[in-house]
């Protein structure tokens, strides 16, 4: 997938109805992401970062314009097909980790593979590999409540990448972490990006994350105001 188009948005506009004054979250956004990118959407709160991430992640649909992810037009996908796209090709990392509290680390990471219908043996290997990537092999039997914030986010990363998706969408992944843990998980994600070729698309206004990005797209009031390729 190297140098192939993974995401393409054409005149993407998203308007949320809100009483008499609809809110325009995105206006005519035109972007292209190649496979293997390590890119971020930056901008102040309300600039449309999360909305764009949601649409790219097939959790929402554009009001007008077009979004193509891995050759699938998001605006025409049925619920079932959108779920299948997320299931097979997209991983999510959240600001608040959102681990399932009653399950162990191992089971949290295993869950996406259950949805894929993988065999138990294949799941076991994939989960152990993913936990090894994030350095948590020794915590597979722990519950989320027994983990630190940094460890929890590493479990969330393992869960996002365990199925080896083409794309990982990370919404403010370091917002709840201290500097050390932020750097640690960013390095982990960079390693995965490099080793597995997984494309990462961040939504962030954290300078620590921005410093690691190889491409920074700035959004203001729903418009792309800058799109900079960077060398790290």
């Amino acid at each position: 997938m190297e140098n192939s188009v993974l995401i393409r948005t054409v005149n993407l506009t998203k308007i949320y109805p809100s009483g008499e004054q609809p809110i325009t979250a995105l206006r005519d956004v035109n972007l292209v992401f190649q496979a293997g990118e390590f890119a971020g959407l930056v901008g102040p709160s309300g600039s449309g970062k999360t909305t764009l991430l949601n649409i790219v992640g097939s959790l929402d649909v554009p009001t007008s314009g077009s979004v193509e992810v891995l050759g699938e037009k998001i605006e025409t996908l049925s619920h079932k097909k959108a779920a299948r796209l997320r299931n097979r090709h997209i991983g999510f990392i959240f600001q608040t980790f959102n681990l399932l509290p009653v399950y162990t680390v191992y089971e949290n990471v295993e869950f996406p593979l259950l949805l894929l219908g993988m065999t138990a043996a294949a799941r076991r290997k994939a989960v152990r590999d993913a936990l090894a990537w994030v350095g948590l092999s020794d915590r597979e039997h722990s519950r989320p409540a027994q983990l630190s914030g940094g460890q929890s986010q590493r479990v969330a990363i393992a869960r996002a990448v365990v199925k080896k998706p083409d794309l990982v969408l990370a919404d403010e992944p370091t917002a709840n972490l201290d500097a050390d843990n932020s750097h640690h998980i960013l390095h982990t994600m960079e390693d995965i990006n490099r080793d597995l070729g997984t494309t990462f698309l961040f939504s962030t206004h954290d300078a620590k994350v921005i410093a690691h990005l190889r491409r920074k797209i700035t959004l203001v009031d729903g418009r792309v105001t800058a799109d900079e390729a960077r060398t790290t």
Partner: peptide, 16 residues
Amino acid sequence: YGEIGVRLAMGEPKGG
């Protein structure tokens, strides 16, 4: 809600 949202995000269909 949190758990259900995560499951939807991971690609579990609403029907599922």
